[in-house]
């Protein structure tokens, strides 16, 4: 469980990126965080992984402050960044997925086991000897996802996972995210494209100018999102269940 307590973030130039955010994220949830550009979405999730230190307040993982035990936190909370190219830290697909488990100090056989599991989960087993740069955009996203899965993270943060992807790529990434969620992992997903994923969401968080302005079940708040410059998928009156790109 992630508990956000009075979280505020002020940057050195004086910008208040997050303003007194309070929220609790329960296990096995599928959270979508939306908001216009510069609303503080990425800054917020970076706090979950301990990549930023709060100016005020704290983020607690199972009651322990995130900043207090970064190794444990980063094992439990995996982070898939926006740009998959800057996450490539290996010269082959297999090598890249092994980066995290190696850092956890696991044995060679355990690393291999985890890498094989993660690659099979995202459907990249047959590409394990390929150069990561040779993969398509969707495959690179899945590789980044595999890198997190290999660390056996319970909570997975995905920052704009559908950006720059074609229709096929979105479907592939989305189906793998759902498959991982169905296995009990908590998913925290940042996106502007609510229509691609909202049907699978258990909670929607809306950020505006660093403030958490709306939270709730998608059907409870979807009609209010337009006032925060978020487009209601396919116009008002549309059922939440239909807001997905997956047809089956």
């Amino acid at each position: 469980m992630i508990k956000i307590k009075n979280l505020s973030q002020k940057f050195p130039d004086g910008t208040l990126a997050l303003k007194n955010i309070n929220h609790t994220i329960k296990r096995s949830e599928f959270i979508v965080i939306a908001g216009e550009n510069g609303s503080g979405k990425t800054v917020l999730v970076k706090h979950f992984n301990g990549l930023l230190q709060p100016t005020e307040g704290a983020v607690l993982l199972d009651g322990i402050p995130v900043s207090g035990n970064l190794k444990l936190v980063r094992q439990k909370i995996g982070y898939v960044f926006q740009n998959p190219d800057s996450q490539i830290l290996g010269q082959t697909v297999e090598d890249d997925v092994a980066f995290g488990p190696r850092n956890l100090g696991l044995s060679g056989s355990e690393i291999k086991k985890r890498v094989n599991y993660a690659l099979s989960e995202v459907g990249l087993t047959d590409k394990k000897d390929r150069i990561p740069y040779s993969l398509s955009g969707g495959e690179k996203r899945r590789l980044a996802l595999a890198g997190v899965l290999a660390m056996d993270s319970e909570i997975i943060i995905l920052d704009e996972p559908f950006i720059h992807l074609d229709y096929k790529g979105v479907l592939q990434v989305l189906s793998h995210i759902l498959s991982i969620h169905n296995k009990g992992k908590t998913i925290i997903l940042i996106t502007h494209d609510l229509e691609k994923v909202l049907a699978h969401t258990t909670e929607l968080l809306i950020l505006n100018n660093g403030e958490l302005v709306l939270t709730g079940k998608p059907y409870q708040i979807i009609d209010k999102v337009a006032q925060y410059n978020i487009r209601i998928p396919f116009g008002p009156g549309r059922k939440i269940e239909s807001m997905t790109w997956l047809t089956t």
């Binding site: 190794k71 094992q75 800057s86 830290l89 980066f99 850092n103 997190v148």
Partner: peptide, 9 residues
Amino acid sequence: CSMEARSYS
């Protein structure tokens, strides 16, 4: 950032 998120130390 990516290295840090994947527990590099």
